[in-house]
Write a protein that binds this DNA or RNA. Sequence first.
DNA 1: GATGCATGTGACGCAGTCGTCACGAAGAAA
DNA 2: TTTCTTCGTGACGACTGCGTCACATGCATC
Lengths: 230, 230
Amino acid sequence: MSKILVVDDEPDISELISLHLMREGHECLCATNGLQVMPMVLEQQPDLIVLDIMLPGQDGMAVFKRLRSDSRTRSVPVIMLTAKAQVTDKINGLELGADDYLTKPFSPRELALRITAILRRTKIVTHVSEVKTGAFLMDRKNMKFFHNDKPIDLTTTEFKLLAVLIENTNAVHTRSELLREVWGYSDDVATRTLDTHIKRLREKLGDAGKHVVTVRGTGYQFLIEAPVAG
Amino acid sequence: MSKILVVDDEPDISELISLHLMREGHECLCATNGLQVMPMVLEQQPDLIVLDIMLPGQDGMAVFKRLRSDSRTRSVPVIMLTAKAQVTDKINGLELGADDYLTKPFSPRELALRITAILRRTKIVTHVSEVKTGAFLMDRKNMKFFHNDKPIDLTTTEFKLLAVLIENTNAVHTRSELLREVWGYSDDVATRTLDTHIKRLREKLGDAGKHVVTVRGTGYQFLIEAPVAG
DNA sequence: GATGCATGTGACGCAGTCGTCACGAAGAAA
DNA sequence: TTTCTTCGTGACGACTGCGTCACATGCATC
């Protein structure tokens, strides 16, 4: 699902980390030397970097500073690994803008969870759900919407409307709520504009349009069948 | 800057935390009992919650589950506090979707930094800078832009253009870079479209338009005078 | 200061988007 | 089934936003 660069000088640790990340469906790259990092990031464009503080060649903090000083790599989230709970390192890392840090020894499972959490927050891409019909993806940054990795171009109003619906999947959104959120209407206005836009949305969504469900007398909802509860 | 709810049964700790957060410019609310949390969140709508695991009334994990099960409170980021490095708690917390956790004893400064980090990632609102002329605020969620808390309405293209510029303040963006980022042009195209949109942007920004600076022969930058370096 | 090039600016036409309305279809209530 | 309400749909006019162009302005180099 995501491409992750693991930077650690101990091959055992890199391998352990990679193994767990790949098990989660991520693609992994490894670097053992600090000097390899910049060129690899520029070439491979990973979605996230797991960076050890102690490295031969160039230490982790220096690598991190270089990453953050270059506009091409500034936005790549970084998780730092520290050998021991060295508070100054933690604070330095966080102060410089690391997205998280982890103290060795750590459970690989925890690392995987933290990576998922960070990707969820930083990608700006909201992964809505995966159902039989495929995945819905919303990319606020580029104001685009994907269904089954296929981009669907929506107008500004359509995107806003879908964003509100999809932000709270399965929740029923009343007409007045939608008119407020999307159009900024403060008091109830009798208008068919919403209906028309729902129609246009359904059209552009094609098959996926069936997820936009009318709740008669109330409003609309973006309905995804819930996974079988355990 | 942000409203933060601190939930801890020990007043000493709450006070210490609040003190540091307020020093960072945040607004603080306190709760000592787990049962107070939901109503307070609904009423006060904090931007973030600092939640102790050990609580009278209803323990932190239960409170957290309730927060996440209600659509009205689902998106509020939560930092969990654990008394000791109880790995199962950590994993439970992260698995359930906590945005971070902190193990007691922790440095209040670290908490403040983590809060800043999380708000930076989750708020979707990018706080660009505060200069004499006031603050610039970009709200991706509503695709709006504020200057001195005054909304400025921009068209989609204008917003995208400004977003790219403002995402890397003071960095020079080449023409081809902007044409690629905003218009999706892959190869260099000779067009005056960019110039026109820059002009329109400057017009709508009014006084703030002076921050959009031409870098002759190269491109444009969004220039904010750097604070006096230490 | 003169020349050449890059950028600013105003105007214009096309294309796309929006909201409204009228009418038809589909539920709900009786 | 009949009646009433709510929602779906297609068409239409108005408007907005966009990209292009022509011309004006401004900077740099000599």
